[in-house]
């Protein structure tokens, strides 16, 4: 996992509510056995017409989206299915941060495990950020994960919560399995104490 500390990036605006994981990556693209190439089908049904050509009016097809690492969404982003293909497709496209007023639980977990930071803001802040974005769609926003802040053009700075454990994992680029494995003695002891050991 690539560490995430600071970044400056333009923003892709998709401020719709309840964007579900079937929109992020439709089920027919889940037949893969690896993680590569999912980004090519990110938001496939919104991004491409029936014959596969890009819809010019969809934001990801517009020039300012190229290379953007920040996605600005609405409420309840990533609801629906548990498919980790959703964060894989988003990070494969280049996103490292999604801003929303809330996230689907499983999506949020999956995102954090893949170096994608879900930034949750309240509705008022969301509205202010949206206004900045409408005024200055090309402007760059700056993330400082250490300071837990996003700075927008025009002087708006937004502070957000992230739990200390996820923050450390993101900043170091470490993944959680290593942490879990370090508890093997306790796991074995738990199994013994609860009659759950192998063969019990």
């Amino acid at each position: 996992m690539q560490p995430l500390t600071k970044l400056n990036s333009r923003v892709v605006a998709l401020p719709l509510n309840d964007i579900d994981t079937d929109q992020i990556i439709p089920a027919r693209f889940l037949k893969v056995t690896d993680k590569a190439d999912l980004a090519a089908n990110l938001f496939a049904d919104w991004r491409f017409t029936a014959d596969g050509s890009p819809r010019p009016d969809f934001v990801l097809n517009q020039p300012q989206s190229r290379g953007a690492q920040l996605l600005f969404a609405g409420n309840n982003f990533g609801c629906g299915s548990s498919r980790e293909h959703a964060p894989w497709a988003l990070t494969g496209f280049g996103f490292r941060v999604v801003v929303a007023t809330s996230f689907g639980d499983i999506f949020r977990n999956n995102a954090l495990k893949n170096g994608l930071l879900p930034v949750r803001v309240d509705a008022d802040t969301h509205q202010k950020m949206r206004e900045v974005l409408e005024e200055n769609p090309q402007g760059e926003w700056s993330l400082d994960l250490e300071a837990q802040s996003l700075s927008l053009p025009g002087g708006l700075t937004v502070h957000f919560d992230v739990d200390p454990f996820s923050k450390t994992c993101l900043m170091r680029g470490t993944d959680e399995l290593g942490y879990l494995l370090s508890f093997m003695d306790q796991i074995l002891a738990y199994e013994q104490a609860h009659g759950k050991q192998v063969g019990a």
């Binding site: 548990s82 498919r83 980790e84 964060p87 499983i106 977990n109 999956n110 495990k113 893949n114 993944d175 959680e176 399995l177 879990l180 494995l181 508890f183 093997m184 796991i187």
Partner: peptide
Amino acid sequence: IGTSEVEHVLAT
């Protein structure tokens, strides 16, 4: 759970 977590549970 997501696939990373599937791996976590398989391993631990």
